[in-house]
Write a protein that binds this DNA or RNA. Structure first.
Lengths: 275, 275
DNA sequence: ATGAGGAATGAATCCCCAC
DNA sequence: GGTGGGGATTCATTCCTCA
Protein backbone atom coordinates (compact mmCIF):
# COMPACT_ATOMS: atom_id res chain seq x y z
CA UNK A 1 0.00 0.00 0.00
CA UNK A 2 2.92 2.31 -0.64
CA UNK A 3 4.02 3.97 -3.79
CA UNK A 4 6.87 5.99 -5.28
CA UNK A 5 6.47 8.27 -8.25
CA UNK A 6 9.51 9.59 -10.06
CA UNK A 7 9.74 12.23 -12.76
CA UNK A 8 12.53 11.83 -15.28
CA UNK A 9 14.11 9.56 -17.85
CA UNK A 10 13.50 6.00 -16.76
CA UNK A 11 17.10 4.89 -17.34
CA UNK A 12 18.41 7.66 -15.09
CA UNK A 13 15.87 6.98 -12.37
CA UNK A 14 16.35 3.20 -12.50
CA UNK A 15 20.11 3.76 -12.15
CA UNK A 16 19.41 5.36 -8.78
CA UNK A 17 17.43 2.39 -7.45
CA UNK A 18 19.05 -0.45 -5.49
CA UNK A 19 20.02 -3.68 -7.30
CA UNK A 20 17.65 -6.66 -7.12
CA UNK A 21 14.91 -4.73 -5.36
CA UNK A 22 12.04 -5.20 -7.82
CA UNK A 23 9.89 -8.33 -8.18
CA UNK A 24 8.01 -7.52 -11.36
CA UNK A 25 7.80 -5.01 -14.19
CA UNK A 26 4.44 -4.37 -15.85
CA UNK A 27 4.56 -1.62 -18.43
CA UNK A 28 3.36 -0.27 -21.74
CA UNK A 29 6.24 1.69 -23.29
CA UNK A 30 5.66 4.27 -26.01
CA UNK A 31 5.21 2.45 -29.30
CA UNK A 32 7.49 3.25 -32.20
CA UNK A 33 6.41 6.24 -34.27
CA UNK A 34 3.40 6.76 -32.01
CA UNK A 35 2.67 9.50 -29.49
CA UNK A 36 5.36 11.67 -31.06
CA UNK A 37 3.82 14.82 -29.68
CA UNK A 38 4.00 13.67 -26.08
CA UNK A 39 6.98 11.30 -25.83
CA UNK A 40 9.01 12.25 -28.88
CA UNK A 41 8.42 9.00 -30.70
CA UNK A 42 11.16 6.38 -30.97
CA UNK A 43 12.06 5.67 -34.64
CA UNK A 44 11.30 2.10 -35.66
CA UNK A 45 14.88 1.33 -36.56
CA UNK A 46 16.08 2.42 -33.12
CA UNK A 47 13.36 0.64 -31.16
CA UNK A 48 15.16 -2.69 -30.49
CA UNK A 49 18.33 -0.99 -29.22
CA UNK A 50 16.30 1.50 -27.21
CA UNK A 51 14.35 -1.34 -25.56
CA UNK A 52 17.51 -3.34 -24.85
CA UNK A 53 19.00 -0.23 -23.22
CA UNK A 54 16.23 0.45 -20.73
CA UNK A 55 15.76 -3.27 -20.11
CA UNK A 56 19.48 -3.55 -19.24
CA UNK A 57 18.99 -1.05 -16.44
CA UNK A 58 15.81 -2.85 -15.42
CA UNK A 59 17.72 -6.13 -15.24
CA UNK A 60 20.01 -4.73 -12.60
CA UNK A 61 17.20 -3.76 -10.25
CA UNK A 62 15.10 -6.87 -10.94
CA UNK A 63 15.38 -9.74 -8.44
CA UNK A 64 16.84 -13.01 -9.81
CA UNK A 65 13.39 -14.62 -10.09
CA UNK A 66 11.68 -11.45 -11.28
CA UNK A 67 10.23 -10.90 -14.72
CA UNK A 68 8.77 -8.21 -16.97
CA UNK A 69 5.55 -8.01 -18.96
CA UNK A 70 5.70 -5.46 -21.77
CA UNK A 71 2.65 -4.39 -23.76
CA UNK A 72 3.35 -3.42 -27.37
CA UNK A 73 1.56 -3.87 -30.66
CA UNK A 74 2.97 -2.79 -33.98
CA UNK A 75 1.05 -0.45 -36.24
CA UNK A 76 0.12 -1.03 -39.87
CA UNK A 77 1.58 1.17 -42.59
CA UNK A 78 0.81 0.84 -46.28
CA UNK A 79 -0.90 -2.46 -45.60
CA UNK A 80 2.02 -4.05 -43.78
CA UNK A 81 2.54 -4.49 -40.06
CA UNK A 82 5.74 -3.05 -38.72
CA UNK A 83 8.46 -5.55 -37.88
CA UNK A 84 9.96 -3.66 -34.97
CA UNK A 85 8.40 -5.83 -32.28
CA UNK A 86 9.82 -8.94 -33.96
CA UNK A 87 13.29 -7.40 -34.05
CA UNK A 88 12.90 -6.11 -30.50
CA UNK A 89 12.03 -9.56 -29.19
CA UNK A 90 15.03 -11.10 -30.94
CA UNK A 91 17.27 -8.30 -29.64
CA UNK A 92 16.13 -8.88 -26.06
CA UNK A 93 16.78 -12.61 -26.45
CA UNK A 94 20.23 -11.84 -27.84
CA UNK A 95 20.80 -9.62 -24.81
CA UNK A 96 20.28 -12.67 -22.58
CA UNK A 97 16.61 -12.32 -21.71
CA UNK A 98 14.45 -15.46 -21.53
CA UNK A 99 11.18 -15.01 -23.43
CA UNK A 100 8.72 -16.90 -21.26
CA UNK A 101 5.53 -16.64 -23.25
CA UNK A 102 3.41 -14.60 -25.62
CA UNK A 103 0.36 -13.40 -23.74
CA UNK A 104 -2.63 -11.76 -25.39
CA UNK A 105 -4.67 -8.84 -24.14
CA UNK A 106 -8.04 -9.11 -25.85
CA UNK A 107 -10.03 -5.88 -25.98
CA UNK A 108 -13.70 -6.65 -26.62
CA UNK A 109 -14.66 -2.99 -26.67
CA UNK A 110 -11.99 -1.90 -29.11
CA UNK A 111 -13.12 1.01 -31.26
CA UNK A 112 -13.79 0.34 -34.97
CA UNK A 113 -10.68 2.19 -36.10
CA UNK A 114 -8.07 1.34 -38.70
CA UNK A 115 -8.51 0.51 -42.34
CA UNK A 116 -12.04 -0.52 -43.33
CA UNK A 117 -10.32 -3.02 -45.61
CA UNK A 118 -8.88 -4.90 -42.68
CA UNK A 119 -10.25 -6.74 -39.65
CA UNK A 120 -10.84 -4.49 -36.69
CA UNK A 121 -7.86 -4.70 -34.33
CA UNK A 122 -8.97 -6.11 -31.00
CA UNK A 123 -5.88 -7.42 -29.24
CA UNK A 124 -2.37 -6.47 -28.18
CA UNK A 125 0.67 -8.49 -27.22
CA UNK A 126 2.02 -8.83 -23.71
CA UNK A 127 5.65 -9.88 -24.06
CA UNK A 128 6.91 -11.69 -20.99
CA UNK A 129 10.65 -11.75 -20.36
CA UNK A 130 12.64 -13.08 -17.39
CA UNK A 131 16.25 -13.51 -16.32
CA UNK A 132 15.97 -17.28 -16.80
CA UNK A 133 13.46 -19.99 -17.71
CA UNK A 134 11.97 -20.42 -14.27
CA UNK A 135 10.96 -17.05 -12.89
CA UNK A 136 8.43 -16.59 -10.11
CA UNK A 137 4.98 -17.46 -11.49
CA UNK A 138 1.60 -17.98 -9.91
CA UNK A 139 -0.60 -19.23 -12.72
CA UNK A 140 -3.52 -19.65 -10.31
CA UNK A 141 -3.52 -16.29 -8.51
CA UNK A 142 -5.99 -14.92 -11.05
CA UNK A 143 -7.50 -18.35 -11.70
CA UNK A 144 -11.04 -19.48 -11.09
CA UNK A 145 -12.43 -22.43 -9.11
CA UNK A 146 -12.53 -25.72 -10.98
CA UNK A 147 -15.95 -27.07 -11.73
CA UNK A 148 -15.90 -30.81 -12.05
CA UNK A 149 -18.60 -32.48 -14.13
CA UNK A 150 -21.58 -33.07 -11.92
CA UNK A 151 -20.15 -30.96 -9.13
CA UNK A 152 -22.76 -28.44 -8.07
CA UNK A 153 -21.00 -27.26 -4.94
CA UNK A 154 -19.09 -24.52 -6.71
CA UNK A 155 -15.93 -26.53 -7.10
CA UNK A 156 -13.93 -26.73 -3.88
CA UNK A 157 -11.07 -29.26 -3.94
CA UNK A 158 -11.80 -32.22 -6.16
CA UNK A 159 -10.31 -35.67 -6.00
CA UNK A 160 -7.91 -34.97 -8.85
CA UNK A 161 -6.11 -32.13 -7.10
CA UNK A 162 -2.85 -32.85 -5.38
CA UNK A 163 0.64 -31.61 -4.72
CA UNK A 164 2.64 -31.61 -7.92
CA UNK A 165 6.39 -32.02 -7.98
CA UNK A 166 6.60 -30.70 -4.46
CA UNK A 167 5.36 -27.31 -5.63
CA UNK A 168 2.55 -25.66 -3.80
CA UNK A 169 -0.58 -25.76 -5.90
CA UNK A 170 -3.72 -23.91 -4.97
CA UNK A 171 -6.29 -26.71 -4.66
CA UNK A 172 -9.47 -26.53 -6.68
CA UNK A 173 -8.26 -23.57 -8.73
CA UNK A 174 -7.63 -23.76 -12.47
CA UNK A 175 -4.74 -21.80 -13.83
CA UNK A 176 -5.36 -18.79 -16.06
CA UNK A 177 -5.08 -19.00 -19.82
CA UNK A 178 -2.57 -17.05 -21.88
CA UNK A 179 -5.23 -14.75 -23.30
CA UNK A 180 -6.99 -12.29 -21.00
CA UNK A 181 -10.04 -10.25 -21.91
CA UNK A 182 -10.20 -6.75 -20.42
CA UNK A 183 -12.22 -3.89 -21.83
CA UNK A 184 -10.30 -0.71 -22.59
CA UNK A 185 -10.78 1.97 -19.99
CA UNK A 186 -12.54 4.82 -21.70
CA UNK A 187 -12.49 6.95 -18.57
CA UNK A 188 -8.76 7.72 -18.55
CA UNK A 189 -8.98 10.75 -20.80
CA UNK A 190 -5.98 12.46 -19.24
CA UNK A 191 -3.46 10.12 -20.85
CA UNK A 192 -3.41 9.03 -24.50
CA UNK A 193 -2.67 5.33 -23.83
CA UNK A 194 -5.64 3.69 -22.12
CA UNK A 195 -4.03 0.83 -20.21
CA UNK A 196 -6.70 -0.51 -17.82
CA UNK A 197 -5.65 -1.27 -14.24
CA UNK A 198 -7.46 -4.62 -14.44
CA UNK A 199 -4.96 -5.73 -17.06
CA UNK A 200 -2.04 -4.65 -14.88
CA UNK A 201 -3.68 -6.52 -12.00
CA UNK A 202 -3.90 -9.72 -14.03
CA UNK A 203 -0.24 -9.40 -15.04
CA UNK A 204 0.86 -8.60 -11.52
CA UNK A 205 -0.98 -11.57 -10.05
CA UNK A 206 0.87 -13.75 -12.54
CA UNK A 207 4.42 -12.56 -11.79
CA UNK A 208 4.45 -10.50 -8.56
CA UNK A 209 4.47 -12.31 -5.20
CA UNK A 210 2.34 -11.13 -2.28
CA UNK A 211 3.69 -7.92 -0.83
CA UNK A 212 6.24 -7.62 -3.64
CA UNK A 213 7.43 -4.54 -5.49
CA UNK A 214 6.16 -3.77 -8.98
CA UNK A 215 7.75 -1.24 -11.33
CA UNK A 216 6.42 0.65 -14.33
CA UNK A 217 9.20 2.66 -16.02
CA UNK A 218 6.62 4.24 -18.38
CA UNK A 219 4.01 4.91 -15.76
CA UNK A 220 1.73 7.22 -17.75
CA UNK A 221 -1.54 7.45 -15.87
CA UNK A 222 -0.26 4.90 -13.31
CA UNK A 223 -2.73 2.12 -14.05
CA UNK A 224 -0.14 -0.37 -12.81
CA UNK A 225 0.01 1.71 -9.62
CA UNK A 226 -3.74 1.42 -9.13
CA UNK A 227 -3.46 -2.36 -9.50
CA UNK A 228 -0.57 -2.36 -7.02
CA UNK A 229 -2.50 -0.46 -4.37
CA UNK A 230 -5.49 -2.75 -4.77
CA UNK A 231 -3.28 -5.83 -4.38
CA UNK A 232 -0.86 -4.80 -1.68
CA UNK A 233 2.19 -4.47 -3.89
CA UNK A 234 4.68 -1.63 -3.48
CA UNK A 235 4.63 0.52 -6.61
CA UNK A 236 7.47 2.35 -8.33
CA UNK A 237 6.30 4.51 -11.21
CA UNK A 238 8.50 6.57 -13.50
CA UNK A 239 7.42 8.97 -16.22
CA UNK A 240 9.20 11.56 -18.31
CA UNK A 241 6.30 13.98 -18.29
CA UNK A 242 5.70 15.98 -15.12
CA UNK A 243 2.02 16.45 -15.88
CA UNK A 244 1.39 12.69 -15.83
CA UNK A 245 3.34 12.28 -12.61
CA UNK A 246 1.20 14.95 -10.95
CA UNK A 247 -1.98 13.39 -12.28
CA UNK A 248 -0.84 9.94 -11.13
CA UNK A 249 -0.19 11.20 -7.62
CA UNK A 250 -3.80 12.38 -7.40
CA UNK A 251 -5.11 9.15 -8.85
CA UNK A 252 -3.09 6.94 -6.50
CA UNK A 253 -3.94 8.99 -3.42
CA UNK A 254 -7.61 8.72 -4.30
CA UNK A 255 -7.21 4.99 -4.81
CA UNK A 256 -5.58 4.57 -1.42
CA UNK A 257 -8.42 6.44 0.25
CA UNK A 258 -10.89 4.21 -1.56
CA UNK A 259 -9.08 1.06 -0.48
CA UNK A 260 -8.92 1.86 3.23
CA UNK A 261 -11.13 4.81 4.00
CA UNK A 262 -11.00 4.37 7.78
CA UNK A 263 -7.23 4.08 8.21
CA UNK A 264 -4.73 6.84 8.80
CA UNK A 265 -2.29 8.43 6.34
CA UNK A 266 -0.40 6.18 3.98
CA UNK A 267 3.29 5.89 3.50
CA UNK A 268 4.26 7.54 0.26
CA UNK A 269 7.69 8.37 -1.07
CA UNK A 270 8.25 10.70 -3.96
CA UNK A 271 11.52 11.47 -5.63
CA UNK A 272 12.89 12.60 -8.95
CA UNK A 273 13.36 15.79 -10.90
CA UNK A 274 9.87 16.98 -10.05
CA UNK A 275 10.15 16.38 -6.34
CA UNK B 1 -18.02 -27.37 -55.24
CA UNK B 2 -15.07 -29.10 -56.85
CA UNK B 3 -11.87 -30.33 -55.32
CA UNK B 4 -8.47 -31.71 -56.21
CA UNK B 5 -6.43 -33.86 -53.88
CA UNK B 6 -2.76 -34.52 -54.60
CA UNK B 7 -0.39 -36.89 -52.89
CA UNK B 8 3.26 -35.87 -52.77
CA UNK B 9 5.70 -33.20 -51.70
CA UNK B 10 3.92 -29.86 -51.85
CA UNK B 11 6.77 -28.09 -53.66
CA UNK B 12 6.74 -30.73 -56.43
CA UNK B 13 2.97 -30.64 -56.77
CA UNK B 14 2.77 -26.86 -56.73
CA UNK B 15 5.41 -26.73 -59.47
CA UNK B 16 2.96 -28.64 -61.68
CA UNK B 17 0.12 -26.15 -61.17
CA UNK B 18 -0.44 -23.19 -63.52
CA UNK B 19 0.88 -19.75 -62.56
CA UNK B 20 -1.50 -17.26 -60.91
CA UNK B 21 -4.33 -19.75 -60.60
CA UNK B 22 -4.93 -19.66 -56.84
CA UNK B 23 -6.82 -16.96 -54.93
CA UNK B 24 -5.98 -17.89 -51.38
CA UNK B 25 -3.86 -20.21 -49.28
CA UNK B 26 -5.13 -21.34 -45.88
CA UNK B 27 -2.87 -23.87 -44.22
CA UNK B 28 -1.36 -25.21 -41.05
CA UNK B 29 2.10 -26.56 -41.87
CA UNK B 30 3.88 -29.02 -39.58
CA UNK B 31 5.35 -27.12 -36.64
CA UNK B 32 9.08 -27.32 -35.96
CA UNK B 33 10.10 -30.31 -33.87
CA UNK B 34 6.50 -31.54 -33.70
CA UNK B 35 4.85 -34.54 -35.31
CA UNK B 36 8.21 -36.07 -36.02
CA UNK B 37 6.71 -39.51 -36.25
CA UNK B 38 4.27 -38.55 -39.01
CA UNK B 39 5.95 -35.76 -40.97
CA UNK B 40 9.62 -36.16 -40.09
CA UNK B 41 9.77 -32.92 -38.14
CA UNK B 42 11.51 -29.82 -39.50
CA UNK B 43 14.43 -28.75 -37.26
CA UNK B 44 13.95 -25.30 -35.75
CA UNK B 45 17.05 -23.86 -37.38
CA UNK B 46 15.89 -24.96 -40.84
CA UNK B 47 12.32 -23.77 -40.43
CA UNK B 48 12.63 -20.23 -41.88
CA UNK B 49 14.44 -21.43 -45.03
CA UNK B 50 12.04 -24.35 -45.39
CA UNK B 51 9.05 -21.99 -45.19
CA UNK B 52 10.59 -19.51 -47.64
CA UNK B 53 11.15 -22.40 -50.07
CA UNK B 54 7.59 -23.69 -50.20
CA UNK B 55 6.21 -20.15 -50.11
CA UNK B 56 8.33 -19.28 -53.16
CA UNK B 57 6.57 -21.97 -55.13
CA UNK B 58 3.25 -20.83 -53.70
CA UNK B 59 3.98 -17.28 -54.83
CA UNK B 60 4.17 -18.39 -58.44
CA UNK B 61 0.73 -19.99 -58.46
CA UNK B 62 -0.91 -17.27 -56.35
CA UNK B 63 -2.83 -14.56 -58.19
CA UNK B 64 -1.45 -11.00 -57.88
CA UNK B 65 -4.09 -10.02 -55.31
CA UNK B 66 -4.01 -13.38 -53.54
CA UNK B 67 -2.73 -13.97 -50.03
CA UNK B 68 -1.88 -16.73 -47.59
CA UNK B 69 -2.89 -17.38 -43.98
CA UNK B 70 -0.52 -19.70 -42.15
CA UNK B 71 -1.29 -21.18 -38.74
CA UNK B 72 1.73 -21.84 -36.50
CA UNK B 73 2.49 -21.55 -32.83
CA UNK B 74 5.90 -22.12 -31.30
CA UNK B 75 6.41 -24.56 -28.46
CA UNK B 76 7.97 -23.89 -25.07
CA UNK B 77 11.16 -25.64 -23.99
CA UNK B 78 12.94 -25.13 -20.68
CA UNK B 79 10.68 -22.19 -19.93
CA UNK B 80 11.41 -20.28 -23.13
CA UNK B 81 9.28 -20.03 -26.25
CA UNK B 82 11.00 -21.00 -29.45
CA UNK B 83 12.00 -18.13 -31.72
CA UNK B 84 11.56 -19.90 -35.03
CA UNK B 85 8.26 -18.24 -35.92
CA UNK B 86 9.86 -14.81 -35.37
CA UNK B 87 12.75 -15.70 -37.64
CA UNK B 88 10.38 -17.25 -40.18
CA UNK B 89 8.29 -14.09 -40.36
CA UNK B 90 11.38 -11.94 -40.89
CA UNK B 91 12.67 -14.39 -43.52
CA UNK B 92 9.38 -14.23 -45.44
CA UNK B 93 9.48 -10.44 -45.32
CA UNK B 94 13.08 -10.49 -46.55
CA UNK B 95 11.89 -12.75 -49.38
CA UNK B 96 9.52 -10.02 -50.52
CA UNK B 97 6.31 -11.03 -48.82
CA UNK B 98 4.06 -8.35 -47.33
CA UNK B 99 2.97 -9.25 -43.80
CA UNK B 100 -0.59 -7.95 -43.68
CA UNK B 101 -1.59 -8.65 -40.12
CA UNK B 102 -1.26 -10.88 -37.11
CA UNK B 103 -4.54 -12.71 -36.59
CA UNK B 104 -5.36 -14.76 -33.53
CA UNK B 105 -7.16 -18.08 -33.33
CA UNK B 106 -8.59 -18.32 -29.83
CA UNK B 107 -9.41 -21.86 -28.69
CA UNK B 108 -11.85 -21.77 -25.79
CA UNK B 109 -11.81 -25.54 -25.48
CA UNK B 110 -8.06 -25.89 -25.34
CA UNK B 111 -7.05 -28.80 -23.11
CA UNK B 112 -5.42 -28.10 -19.72
CA UNK B 113 -2.07 -29.37 -20.89
CA UNK B 114 1.38 -27.84 -20.89
CA UNK B 115 3.40 -26.78 -17.89
CA UNK B 116 1.38 -26.39 -14.69
CA UNK B 117 3.71 -23.46 -13.89
CA UNK B 118 2.51 -21.48 -16.87
CA UNK B 119 -0.81 -20.12 -18.11
CA UNK B 120 -2.79 -22.63 -20.09
CA UNK B 121 -2.14 -22.03 -23.80
CA UNK B 122 -5.37 -21.11 -25.52
CA UNK B 123 -4.49 -19.38 -28.78
CA UNK B 124 -2.44 -19.78 -31.93
CA UNK B 125 -1.19 -17.32 -34.52
CA UNK B 126 -2.55 -16.91 -38.02
CA UNK B 127 0.19 -15.24 -40.06
CA UNK B 128 -1.21 -13.39 -43.07
CA UNK B 129 1.11 -12.71 -45.99
CA UNK B 130 0.41 -11.24 -49.42
CA UNK B 131 2.29 -10.24 -52.56
CA UNK B 132 1.74 -6.55 -51.73
CA UNK B 133 0.05 -4.29 -49.22
CA UNK B 134 -3.40 -4.29 -50.78
CA UNK B 135 -4.48 -7.90 -51.44
CA UNK B 136 -8.08 -8.98 -51.91
CA UNK B 137 -9.87 -8.69 -48.57
CA UNK B 138 -13.49 -8.88 -47.49
CA UNK B 139 -13.48 -7.90 -43.86
CA UNK B 140 -17.26 -8.24 -43.71
CA UNK B 141 -17.85 -11.62 -45.35
CA UNK B 142 -17.67 -13.33 -41.97
CA UNK B 143 -19.01 -10.27 -40.17
CA UNK B 144 -22.17 -10.02 -38.16
CA UNK B 145 -25.05 -7.59 -38.42
CA UNK B 146 -24.53 -4.39 -36.51
CA UNK B 147 -26.85 -4.03 -33.56
CA UNK B 148 -27.43 -0.46 -32.65
CA UNK B 149 -28.41 0.29 -29.08
CA UNK B 150 -32.14 -0.11 -28.82
CA UNK B 151 -32.43 -1.67 -32.27
CA UNK B 152 -34.54 -4.79 -32.05
CA UNK B 153 -34.94 -5.39 -35.76
CA UNK B 154 -31.87 -7.56 -36.03
CA UNK B 155 -29.67 -4.83 -37.36
CA UNK B 156 -30.24 -4.13 -41.03
CA UNK B 157 -28.61 -0.98 -42.38
CA UNK B 158 -28.28 1.72 -39.77
CA UNK B 159 -27.73 5.40 -40.19
CA UNK B 160 -24.01 5.14 -39.43
CA UNK B 161 -23.31 2.87 -42.40
CA UNK B 162 -22.34 4.47 -45.64
CA UNK B 163 -19.99 4.35 -48.57
CA UNK B 164 -16.54 4.79 -47.12
CA UNK B 165 -13.64 6.10 -49.21
CA UNK B 166 -15.49 5.07 -52.33
CA UNK B 167 -15.13 1.39 -51.41
CA UNK B 168 -18.10 -0.89 -51.54
CA UNK B 169 -19.16 -1.67 -48.01
CA UNK B 170 -21.71 -4.28 -47.01
CA UNK B 171 -24.37 -2.18 -45.28
CA UNK B 172 -25.33 -3.03 -41.72
CA UNK B 173 -22.51 -5.53 -41.34
CA UNK B 174 -19.65 -5.02 -38.93
CA UNK B 175 -16.11 -5.95 -39.91
CA UNK B 176 -14.70 -9.05 -38.27
CA UNK B 177 -12.07 -8.51 -35.63
CA UNK B 178 -8.52 -9.81 -35.85
CA UNK B 179 -9.16 -12.46 -33.21
CA UNK B 180 -11.52 -15.33 -33.96
CA UNK B 181 -12.83 -17.83 -31.44
CA UNK B 182 -13.32 -21.39 -32.70
CA UNK B 183 -13.36 -24.48 -30.51
CA UNK B 184 -10.88 -27.20 -31.41
CA UNK B 185 -12.47 -30.07 -33.26
CA UNK B 186 -12.11 -33.19 -31.12
CA UNK B 187 -13.84 -35.40 -33.64
CA UNK B 188 -11.00 -35.50 -36.17
CA UNK B 189 -9.29 -38.49 -34.63
CA UNK B 190 -7.73 -39.68 -37.87
CA UNK B 191 -5.27 -36.80 -38.05
CA UNK B 192 -3.15 -35.44 -35.21
CA UNK B 193 -3.66 -31.75 -35.98
CA UNK B 194 -7.19 -30.71 -35.17
CA UNK B 195 -7.66 -27.71 -37.44
CA UNK B 196 -11.40 -27.03 -37.40
CA UNK B 197 -13.07 -26.29 -40.72
CA UNK B 198 -14.88 -23.34 -39.14
CA UNK B 199 -11.51 -21.63 -38.71
CA UNK B 200 -10.60 -22.30 -42.34
CA UNK B 201 -14.00 -20.91 -43.32
CA UNK B 202 -13.40 -17.70 -41.42
CA UNK B 203 -9.97 -17.30 -43.05
CA UNK B 204 -11.35 -18.12 -46.50
CA UNK B 205 -14.16 -15.60 -46.17
CA UNK B 206 -11.55 -12.97 -45.36
CA UNK B 207 -9.22 -13.55 -48.33
CA UNK B 208 -10.95 -15.76 -50.93
CA UNK B 209 -13.46 -14.19 -53.36
CA UNK B 210 -16.73 -15.91 -54.25
CA UNK B 211 -16.14 -18.90 -56.48
CA UNK B 212 -12.37 -18.59 -56.06
CA UNK B 213 -9.75 -21.29 -55.65
CA UNK B 214 -8.26 -22.05 -52.25
CA UNK B 215 -5.11 -24.10 -51.70
CA UNK B 216 -3.80 -26.02 -48.70
CA UNK B 217 -0.29 -27.39 -49.37
CA UNK B 218 -0.37 -29.27 -46.03
CA UNK B 219 -3.88 -30.57 -46.35
CA UNK B 220 -3.88 -33.12 -43.54
CA UNK B 221 -7.48 -34.04 -42.83
CA UNK B 222 -8.66 -31.44 -45.40
CA UNK B 223 -10.47 -29.12 -43.03
CA UNK B 224 -9.80 -26.29 -45.48
CA UNK B 225 -11.43 -28.49 -48.13
CA UNK B 226 -14.56 -28.89 -46.04
CA UNK B 227 -14.76 -25.11 -45.67
CA UNK B 228 -14.25 -24.75 -49.44
CA UNK B 229 -17.08 -27.12 -50.31
CA UNK B 230 -19.42 -25.38 -47.91
CA UNK B 231 -18.59 -21.98 -49.40
CA UNK B 232 -18.40 -22.72 -53.09
CA UNK B 233 -14.63 -22.37 -53.43
CA UNK B 234 -12.58 -24.74 -55.59
CA UNK B 235 -10.19 -26.67 -53.34
CA UNK B 236 -6.66 -27.86 -54.04
CA UNK B 237 -5.26 -30.04 -51.25
CA UNK B 238 -1.77 -31.51 -51.10
CA UNK B 239 -0.40 -33.91 -48.51
CA UNK B 240 2.76 -35.98 -48.28
CA UNK B 241 1.03 -38.90 -46.60
CA UNK B 242 -1.16 -41.16 -48.75
CA UNK B 243 -3.29 -42.25 -45.83
CA UNK B 244 -4.43 -38.67 -45.17
CA UNK B 245 -5.18 -38.10 -48.85
CA UNK B 246 -7.39 -41.19 -48.89
CA UNK B 247 -9.13 -40.16 -45.71
CA UNK B 248 -9.62 -36.63 -47.05
CA UNK B 249 -11.25 -37.95 -50.22
CA UNK B 250 -13.85 -39.77 -48.16
CA UNK B 251 -14.40 -36.76 -45.95
CA UNK B 252 -14.83 -34.35 -48.86
CA UNK B 253 -17.12 -36.71 -50.79
CA UNK B 254 -19.30 -37.04 -47.71
CA UNK B 255 -19.31 -33.27 -47.31
CA UNK B 256 -20.41 -32.78 -50.92
CA UNK B 257 -23.26 -35.24 -50.45
CA UNK B 258 -24.28 -33.40 -47.31
CA UNK B 259 -24.21 -30.02 -49.07
CA UNK B 260 -26.43 -31.01 -52.02
CA UNK B 261 -28.01 -34.41 -51.39
CA UNK B 262 -30.47 -34.19 -54.28
CA UNK B 263 -28.06 -33.20 -57.02
CA UNK B 264 -26.09 -35.45 -59.30
CA UNK B 265 -22.41 -36.41 -59.16
CA UNK B 266 -19.87 -33.72 -58.52
CA UNK B 267 -16.88 -32.75 -60.54
CA UNK B 268 -13.77 -34.02 -58.84
CA UNK B 269 -10.22 -34.19 -60.12
CA UNK B 270 -7.58 -36.29 -58.48
CA UNK B 271 -3.92 -36.44 -59.40
CA UNK B 272 -0.58 -37.16 -57.83
CA UNK B 273 1.59 -40.09 -56.86
CA UNK B 274 -1.30 -41.87 -55.22
CA UNK B 275 -3.70 -41.58 -58.11
C1' DA C 1 -36.56 -43.19 -27.66
C1' DT C 2 -34.58 -40.18 -24.25
C1' DG C 3 -31.56 -38.54 -20.88
C1' DA C 4 -28.25 -38.53 -17.15
C1' DG C 5 -23.71 -39.80 -15.97
C1' DG C 6 -19.00 -41.46 -16.71
C1' DA C 7 -14.86 -42.26 -19.31
C1' DA C 8 -11.74 -40.98 -22.75
C1' DT C 9 -9.15 -37.59 -25.23
C1' DG C 10 -6.32 -33.84 -27.09
C1' DA C 11 -0.18 -29.60 -32.09
C1' DA C 12 2.09 -29.90 -24.14
C1' DT C 13 5.52 -29.40 -20.77
C1' DC C 14 8.10 -30.43 -16.90
C1' DC C 15 9.67 -33.15 -13.09
C1' DC C 16 11.06 -37.43 -11.15
C1' DC C 17 13.18 -41.64 -11.30
C1' DA C 18 15.07 -45.73 -13.33
C1' DC C 19 18.68 -47.47 -16.11
C1' DG D 1 25.44 -38.37 -16.68
C1' DG D 2 22.52 -38.71 -20.55
C1' DT D 3 18.26 -40.71 -21.95
C1' DG D 4 13.71 -42.28 -21.75
C1' DG D 5 9.31 -43.63 -19.58
C1' DG D 6 5.52 -42.22 -16.54
C1' DG D 7 2.65 -39.08 -14.12
C1' DA D 8 0.29 -34.68 -13.28
C1' DT D 9 -2.41 -31.03 -15.13
C1' DT D 10 -8.27 -30.44 -14.82
C1' DC D 11 -11.50 -28.03 -20.12
C1' DA D 12 -14.88 -29.05 -23.70
C1' DT D 13 -16.67 -32.39 -26.25
C1' DT D 14 -17.38 -36.86 -27.68
C1' DC D 15 -19.19 -41.56 -27.41
C1' DC D 16 -20.99 -45.18 -24.61
C1' DT D 17 -23.65 -47.28 -20.96
C1' DC D 18 -27.40 -47.89 -18.17
C1' DA D 19 -31.86 -46.54 -16.17
Amino acid sequence: MTYELHHGDCIDIMASLPAESVDAIVTSPPYAEQRKSTYGGIPEKDYPAWTVAWMAEAKRILKPDGSAIINIRPHIKNGQISDYTLRTRLALRDAGWNECEELIWHKPSSPPLGSPQRPRRSWESLHWFAKHGKPYVDAKAAGKPIKFPGDKSGGQSGPHISQLNGLRQAPGIARVTDAVTVATDQTIRAHPAPYPWQLAEWCGKLICPQGGTILDPFSGSASTGVAAIRNGWHYIGIDAIAEYVDMSRKRLDAEQTKQAPTEGPFSCTETGANK
